[in-house]
Design a protein around this nucleic acid. Structure first.
Lengths: 114, 114
DNA sequence: TGAATACTGTGCCATAAGGCAAAGTATAGC
DNA sequence: GCTATACTTTGCCTTATGGCACAGTATTCA
């Protein structure tokens, strides 16, 4: 559960940057290479790579190298961890079980115990 | 929309810290004073105040001072902004409109344009 | 009025984050 | 083999983050 908290921190930290959110948006449409992903951004490759590493460390994407090309794919279950927490919060303060109950079940108490 | 992106960054940044998430968890149960909120944490007050300011700047909480006591309350609509974005992402990669469609409508394109 | 309470402000510190340039490595194509 | 491509590594810089101690202000209570 301390682990769960660190996961959450990493995920939210990764989501806290517009470049990384845009990358996730792009990857939502399908896998892409590093250089394809980097194209829209006015940034050097090494700088961009830091964002990729951040996303990979958080578990939000996975990467795999074939030949000289590294392909990135989105890791759907990982964003669900963030959704779970938010849903748990909402359920908490609304004092009811809503349509997102499915997510809430286990997540609610984990985080509150820090 | 650049504004929307900055809002998102601020919100996710605020959520990226376990202390701040725990504060939100506590405030989900109802308003509380700074010192009540600070009690569970092994941290000096000035340090704790930084977290409060971060949460307030992100809009996730509001505070109001009466006498010498500052009371904090959770700002429910603000967490919804984060939920919207996550839902939009999910809708995007699932290639369908799901039960969270309500959130998705406007948010989808805002962020992708950076 | 004097003391306790509840913040608040200031300044400092160490580490992390996000950017760069320049040089290096490893495949792919000619 | 040589060149171009696609990263990757290294080192450096500036700013932001999260913590501290210490001193200050403003209410409240006796």
């Amino acid at each position: 559960m301390a682990q769960y908290s660190e996961q959450l921190s990493g995920i939210f930290q990764a989501l806290a940057d517009p470049t990384r959110r845009a990358v996730l948006g792009r990857l939502g449409k399908g896998p892409a290479s590093i250089s394809d992903l980097a194209k829209p951004f006015d940034m050097t490759l090494p700088s961009f790579m830091k964002h990729i590493h951040c996303l990979e460390d958080s578990g939000l994407i996975q990467t795999r190298k074939e030949g000289r090309v590294r392909t990135c794919t989105i890791e759907k279950q990982r964003l669900a961890v963030a959704e779970e927490w938010l849903s748990a919060q909402r359920a908490l303060w609304e004092g009811r079980t809503d349509r997102l109950e499915q997510f809430v079940t286990t997540a609610r108490n984990k985080e509150n115990s820090k």
